[in-house]
């Protein structure tokens, strides 16, 4: 009975991937039939890593995506564990309500999130700067400066995704047998020692899953960029998915866009493989 599944995967996964890889070696306008594609060898790959503007833009988008992803993961994982520890305590009043509120942010459509956050970040009348003002901190440029715009988008991403990853962390925490904490307590372990000696090691599988999913989500970031910053200012939020859309659809350069997509896919495969390798090495240690 593996046949239908294999057919499904072949049609909807492997063929599009193979087609993208094939197109990455062609000069092809996305608005013309595949038959018009002209083989150009490695030229597209050469161009996206060259000093031409197309190469500089691609490399900058790659760096922006890597930074956005690294920061998102670095904030999401510890925060989700911290919030998970808080809300999974059944004895804490309002834990259920808190879980619901946290997860609600994940369900809000991105268009609504983008509208609200672009106003929150507004440099003059934005509430965030007003709150900072009460604390004696001067107004921040948020989305209006190339030095802060990407970080502002990371904040938005963390806000939206934290509920989902907290739910994952809570699911992981509920799998940890209570007697282990009891044994740790009898051995004289305090809450901090129990966290590092029991909770964290037994959350490793959950954290592995969360890491991989948060990386994939972050690499695929598109809507907030398209809706709020348009890749600016000065290209500081031009991430790869948005850039590929610009090149592949707006400029209809399908060959170049495909080469970028393949490079992004390879980078993602390398990153995820490295994470699994680290996890396995940790298991053996």
């Amino acid at each position: 009975m593996i046949g239908p599944a294999a057919l499904f995967i072949g049609v909807f996964v492997l063929i599009p991937m193979a087609l993208t890889i094939w197109l990455s070696f062609q000069d092809w306008s996305t608005q013309t039939p595949f038959g018009t594609a002209r083989f150009v060898g490695l030229r597209n790959y050469h161009d996206i890593f060259s000093q031409l503007s197309v190469g500089r833009d691609f490399k900058a988008a790659l760096r922006n995506t890597a930074l956005y992803t690294a920061l998102s993961v670095a904030l999401l994982l510890p925060l989700s564990v911290l919030l998970g520890l808080l809300v999974h305590q059944r004895t804490v009043p309002g834990g259920q309500v808190l879980r619901t509120i946290l997860f609600a942010s994940y369900m809000v459509p991105m268009i609504a999130v983008a509208l609200v956050w672009s106003k929150l970040f507004a440099p003059t009348e934005g509430p965030l700067n007003q709150i900072l003002g009460w604390a004696g901190i001067g107004p921040q440029p948020w989305l209006s400066s190339p030095t802060t715009a990407l970080y502002a988008l990371v904040l938005l991403n963390v806000w939206q995704q934290i509920g989902y990853f907290t739910v994952l962390a809570v699911a992981g925490l509920t799998q940890i047998p209570a007697p282990l904490y009891e044994a740790a307590r009898i051995d004289g372990a305090g809450p901090v020692q129990a966290f590092f000696g029991v909770t964290l090691p037994l959350l490793r599988r959950t954290l592995l899953f969360s890491t991989v999913i948060s990386i994939i989500n972050a690499v695929q970031v598109f809507e907030p960029v398209a809706l709020i910053t348009q890749g600016g200012p000065a290209g500081s939020t031009n991430v790869l998915t948005y850039h590929i859309r610009r090149v592949g659809i707006e400029r209809s350069d399908g060959g170049l866009g495909s080469a970028m997509a393949v490079t992004l896919m390879l980078a993602l495969i390398v990153a995820v493989t490295a994470i699994f390798a680290l996890y396995r090495r940790g298991d053996r240690a």
């Binding site: 440099p123 209006s144 400066s145 398209a226 809706l227 709020i228 200012p233």
Partner: peptide
């Protein structure tokens, strides 16, 4: 002041 000149979609 460039930060005062941002446009949206």
């Amino acid at each position: 002041v460039p930060a005062m000149g941002t446009a949206d979609a």
